[in-house]
């Protein structure tokens, strides 16, 4: 790390703090993935790493390279914005697919489609999802 010798102390301390915070949050999310019991609890855990884990490490990279090159380097913002935008899309798709699979197997632990409709939050009709009477194939 000879390139870091000319770094000012405040930049080194800020970079270290952000790195440790980001890596610690990511580790916490991974422990959550390991420890939670059901899939629908587990799907929440990695978002720790994708929100502030990614944000803090990208900020650390911005601080480090900006104070090394003495000009503002902000292209790590691109990674942060991309991860922040795409993770909810991925996890919503995955959770809907998992719910659909559980319903097709008539698992009693998930609310059926009829229950959801009675509560007034009718989901949008899906292709091949089977109707409320529930005659899932296989």
């Amino acid at each position: 790390m000879s390139h870091a010798a000319e770094l000012p102390v405040w930049a080194a301390l800020l970079t270290s703090l952000l790195l440790l915070v980001g890596a610690g949050l990511t580790l916490l999310g991974a422990v959550g993935v390991l420890q939670f019991r059901s899939f629908f609890e587990r799907v929440h855990a990695p978002t720790l790493g994708t929100s502030w884990g990614t944000g803090a490490i990208a900020l650390a990279s911005i601080v480090f390279f900006s104070s090394l090159g003495t000009r503002l380097v902000v292209h790590e913002v691109l990674i942060g914005v991309f991860i922040t935008v795409t993770t909810p899309v991925t996890l919503m798709l995955l959770a809907r697919a998992a719910l659909h699979r559980e319903r097709a197997e008539e698992n009693p632990n998930v609310p059926s489609r009829a229950v959801m409709r009675r509560r007034g939050s009718a989901p949008a009709p899906e292709d091949g999802a089977g109707d409320a009477a529930g005659t899932p194939s296989s």
Binding site: S16, L20, G24, L27
Partner: peptide, 19 residues
Amino acid sequence: TAAILLWSVSIAQAMLVIA
């Protein structure tokens, strides 16, 4: 500063590997 950075980067990488 190099020592501070080296240690924190190493610890962060170890945490990420454990994750």
